[in-house]
Write a protein that binds this DNA or RNA. Structure first.
Lengths: 328, 328
DNA sequence: CTGAAAGCGCTTACAG
DNA sequence: CTGAAAGCGCTTACAG
């Protein structure tokens, strides 16, 4: 593997000059520049990024950490971020924490150690002290989809309270009396907020809450829905706390021979690509994932460039997509 | 930010000794070890991985490159790999090439430069010369889902030819006479193989092929399906070349008022979580994604540990999951 | 068991 | 415009 010294020797210059050519430093004479470029091409030299990162104490790479790589909301966001970043000359490396605090710590450390220049984090744990350690190092963090406890981080969020309130009220408005909710993890603010939206709407209508714990997981939600059906035969409406859990809930309803929307009307939070294709087509609340992802990346870049020092929090509204799962 | 020298000074030892403690070198006296550990804790020291990688010329990180982060087949595989890797002390960093050869080159270079110890690659381009460069560097590569041209790479594949042949014959066996195929990218062997399976089955039955180009993309497949419906009103069966394209095809059928399975019977390749929930429930060919991912990781580890030098190719069969989209 | 020193491959002030 | 030299933060053969 050729290094900068072999290139220097081959081009009969110093390694400092090779470095300057590589970094487009203008004060190199055209002849020398061409000679160095020829040597680079001839030897098939590629600079060692690890050495460069060590020396410069930074890199052109940003890190993205998601809590669930199988959630279409996150993968859509990742793809949007990756495209925007790539165009601006950043590379992105992605990590999946699978909702584990331990993994989040491990990957924050990996990314910090790899000298990424910034991180977009959909946290598995908001109170992870590693978040503050990374910020102490001067690596900016943008929280995506969920807040973190350190107020130095920027945040791009969706208004989950209002969204689930809207969904619940929509069902109430359509005459449903016993509306259940499949909740996500309450360790996560998104989970708590969505639950709160449900509780507020139910309380305002003078009804009793009927809650199942789905933990943002397909299988858990399936089980929780089955349990709810058994414990509450009066159930006639269901709000499901995210798209993965909606699959689980639909499976449970199918297994139990429940007719949607006749027996139970359903609203899902998130609007994955298949929501119009399930039977019946699912009414959902869609968050503007691509806009949120683009804004998260822009916030990160403005931090990296030090164009801004005050943290920002952006909150986006969901959009009700009426389909068939609540009746005509 | 404390470095190894500050720890050494604080513990009144040399940095060599600190390094030995950090790496669990047994020949350090217990007293010194404890003193160093105390200093590490007190200063909140974390070793700089970039420096370590530069010095050791390797890391405990493996890279995973997928061609489409929004494809559930790949995200399921990524999650499986990540869990297995994490348990064995490896960290995984993920990159998304979005089916772009240029991005694949860029990320192979990033991973090589970050000194990853091995790479699992679902290639966007099989003939990318960067693949050979990375292998030259001694970084093992396992091709996942699709082959690469360099025969030093291991490969974990599914038998796509047989799968699509089976799907097509299944439709023929159910009395369908004019069966179309929504094809993926022919630059990719998976795309070619699936197309070949279709062509073989159709030829064996003495029928004419009816092919639309979906490019492994939802929107393209939707358009291709609409075009096919217009050009071939006789169409009564459709095989769709992957799960993302199946969503597109279903949308197109819906938009055009086609009844499934009465007008057109449908088989999808891949079996994503929602395939039983669409209307009608989709008959599919499922590949054993989790097994394939686990095997890919094991092949990589055995290469990293140099337990094996001959490349291996593992081929898995699909599994027909009969649901409703081809009739009762 | 411990330390002094070299070196991994770069970049960048400092001279000239 | 170019080069010699220091240094980023580690690890490791070599001495002792």
């Amino acid at each position: 593997m050729p290094n900068i010294k072999s290139v220097a020797a081959h081009a009969k210059v110093s390694s400092a000059t090779v470095s300057r050519v590589l970094n487009n430093d203008p004060r190199v004479s055209p002849e020398v520049r061409d000679r160095v470029r020829a040597a680079v091409a001839e030897l098939g030299y590629r600079p060692n990024r690890v050495a460069r990162s060590l020396r410069k104490q930074s890199s052109e790479t940003i890190g993205v950490i998601v809590s669930d790589i199988e959630n279409p909301h996150f993968t859509r966001a990742v793809r949007t971020i990756e495209n925007a970043a790539y165009e601006q000359g950043y590379r992105v490396i992605l990590c999946n924490t699978d909702e584990s605090t331990e993994k989040q710590q491990a990957y924050l450390e990996v990314l910090a150690a790899e000298q990424v220049t910034g991180i977009i984090l959909a946290p598995a744990a908001a109170d992870d002290p590693t978040i503050s350690l990374v910020l102490d190092l001067g690596v900016p963090i943008v929280a995506f989809d969920r807040t973190v406890d350190d107020e130095r981080a920027d945040a791009v969020l969706a208004d989950n309270v209002t969204a689930v309130e809207t969904a619940t009220n929509y069902l109430i408005g359509r005459g449903r009396a016993h509306i259940g909710f499949i909740a996500g993890r309450s360790e996560i603010r998104t989970g708590r907020d969505r639950l709160r939206g449900y509780e507020q709407a139910v309380a305002a209508a003078g009804r009793e809450p009927i809650i199942g714990q789905g933990g943002f997981r397909l299988e858990l939600a399936q089980q929780a829905t089955s349990d709810l059906l058994r414990a509450h035969p009066e159930l006639d409406g269901l709000v499901v706390g995210n798209n993965l859990m909606a699959i689980g809930a639909l499976k449970a309803l199918q297994e139990n021979g429940i007719q949607v929307p006749q027996d139970i009307a359903l609203v899902g939070i998130d609007d994955p690509p298949w929501s119009a294709l399930v039977s019946p087509a699912m009414t959902t609340l869609a968050q503007p994932t691509q806009t949120m992802a683009t804004v998260a990346f822009e916030l990160l870049v403005s931090r990296i460039r030090k164009e801004r020092s005050m943290p920002r929090e952006m909150v986006y509204q969901f959009d009700l997509r009426v389909r068939e799962s609540c009746g005509e």
